[in-house]
């Protein structure tokens, strides 16, 4: 899922201070799963923002809604009526949802309420971890299903750097596995360590953001 987390409340308050009526919008998909922008979080943030704004002497009315999907225009359109008299929108969806709202509510300002930061899996209750960085040239088939792009702090393709800690954790954090340590272990268990012995050439990053904004046309679907 796309992972996001609340921006600092101060930053949100700063954005909303000058407004009179704000629509706070959640999304019931990824951001609900990562407990940042689902209905529960919308209904938590709304009173919290009200209190914070009141403390600063601002009276801002906050109305709320949570869409099934904020990243599709059909769903966002449902909100146009509800939001017809607001002077700002704050979205708790990922960056995609925020932009869908911004397109449809233009020229009303749409502020992001969250920082979208990764593509994650929920490893256990209350614990999310990155899995993919949308690199555009998937190598999982060569790394036993463990991503060295998103999960190695240096996106290495040819094995672990010299920073792997004695306990197999990554040099950047005591809590994060060195993914190359895991890739090698898995390869070894499968008796396929040899497949990692070949030098992997420099990667072609051009099918990701590095190649410019993504735009894909499928004639068969038009």
């Amino acid at each position: 899922m796309i992972f996001a987390e609340w921006k600092p409340i101060d930053e949100l308050v700063e954005k909303l201070k000058a407004h009179k009526k704000v629509l706070l919008v959640g999304c019931a998909t990824c951001v609900a799963e990562c407990a940042a922008g689902g209905e529960k979080e919308v209904e938590t943030l709304a009173p919290l923002l009200s209190m914070a704004l009141k403390k600063q002497g601002c009276s801002v009315e906050i109305i709320t809604a949570t869409l099934e999907k904020q990243c599709e225009f059909e769903f966002v359109e449902e909100l146009i009526e509800k939001g017809h008299d607001v002077d700002a929108v704050m979205s708790l969806a990922c960056g995609i949802g925020v932009q869908a709202m911004a397109d449809l509510f233009d020229p009303i300002p749409v502020y992001p309420g969250v920082n979208t930061s990764a593509l994650t899996i929920r490893e256990e209750a209350g614990l999310w971890a990155g899995r993919c960085a949308a690199c555009g040239d998937c190598v999982l088939g060569e790394t036993f299903g463990l991503c060295p792009i998103a999960r190695c702090a240096k996106s290495l393709l040819n094995g672990p750097c010299g920073g792997t800690r004695g306990n197999g954790k990554c040099e950047v954090s005591e809590d994060t596995d060195c993914i190359w340590n895991l890739i090698v272990e898995r390869g070894d268990e499968r008796g396929q360590l040899d497949s990692l012995a070949e030098v992997k050439k420099s990667k072609n990053w051009s099918n990701s953001r590095h190649g410019g904004p993504k735009r894909v046309i499928r004639e068969d679907l038009r």
Binding site: K40, E43, T44, A46, P47, L48, S50, M51
Partner: peptide
């Protein structure tokens, strides 16, 4: 739930 508690405080 958290929102329930906050609504009391807010109102």
């Amino acid at each position: 739930e958290v929102p329930y508690i906050l609504r009391f405080l807010e109102s």
